[in-house]
Amino acid sequence: MSKPFENFDFSTFWDNDEYALESYVSESPSDELILSIENELGYKLPKSYIEMMKVQNGGTPVNFCFPTDESTSWSKDHVQISGIFGIGREKEYSLAGDLGSQFMIDNWGYPTIGICICDCPSAGHDMIMLDYRKCGKDGEPEVVHVDQEYDYTITFLAKNFEAFIRGLVDYDEYDTSEEDLVNQLEALETARFSTILTQFFQSTQTKDFEKILRTIIIKLTKEKGYFSLHDDPLSYLIYDTLFYLYTKNKKVSSASKYVEKAYPKMIVFTDRGINTGGYAPSFISTWLDEKIANQDITKKFFKGLKFTTEYEHTILERLKPYE
């Protein structure tokens, strides 16, 4: 019988950047630690996985894509992993770490079919698991993709852990970013804004805000290669413009209500073409906190949170190049 990973070159497998070393990579596991983790999780770890972890205990691989025959929430033809959990408890992304296997099962609702072994770029919304349903808790598990976004749909990937590792391929095989950018820019030229923004455009006629916002969004998308709002200057200009439009038409009673309820309806979760499809509330909260701290936004008893007259003038000046 051949040894696990015979003739496999681990010297070129790992991408040991600072993040991987801090969050994934632990010291080589002892036999005692391995047994302890197995007892804690309730499953015998695959021999190939143990042998691999003795070479390097967890980390982020250079090749992080695995082909699929069916579509998932990530892609129609592959899934991606962020890292491989090591055997241990100390690192955040290890089998028994703070964001390890049992955490994902207990807190994210992943099925009790085995062990979460790899996390994915979706930050918890899909995972790679060792599936013990056919082999039992002491057998050789299959490797599957579990998709929280698709009601925890389970997609078979590989017959065992070694086959999964050997099957990982380079991202370049699936890189369609240039084509995706062209398609997105074409769509942004004509796509409709949310219903509430459309109403604001019609009622706030001091400028052609539809044209202005579209121009800024297209510029931002060209610069980033995709449409997403973060803490960059163009994103902040969009936050300014959205808040300006909203407060010209509706009252903002509190910062939390704006971030959680008003903002998403304008640009995040909408039924129209121009939307981010998701958002990190911390970005918009940080922007709002900064404006309040700088007194660009003040709270008036009857009118709620609003820009000062001076800052409104500043915004309108900044929007002139996009008219």
Rank of each mutant, 00 (worst) to 15 (best):
L21G: 11
S23Q: 13
V25E: 04
D31I: 13
D31G: 11
N39D: 11
M53L: 07
K54I: 01
T60V: 15
F66I: 11
D69N: 14
E70L: 09
S71M: 13
H78P: 05
V79A: 00
I81D: 03
F85Y: 13
G86K: 13
I87G: 04
E90N: 15
E92V: 15
S94D: 08
G100A: 08
S101T: 06
W108G: 05
G109D: 05
I115D: 01
C120R: 00
D126T: 03
C135E: 06
K137H: 15
V146K: 01
Y150P: 01
Y152L: 11
T153H: 13
L181W: 07
L181I: 04
A191I: 09
A191W: 03
T195H: 14
L197V: 03
Q199V: 14
Q205M: 07
T206E: 15
D208F: 04
K211C: 10
K222N: 08
E223R: 15
E223H: 12
L229P: 02
L234Q: 12
D240H: 05
L242C: 14
L245I: 06
P264L: 08
G273T: 10
P281Y: 04
I284G: 02
T286Q: 13
W287N: 08
Q295G: 00
Q295F: 07
K300E: 09
E310K: 00
E323F: 10
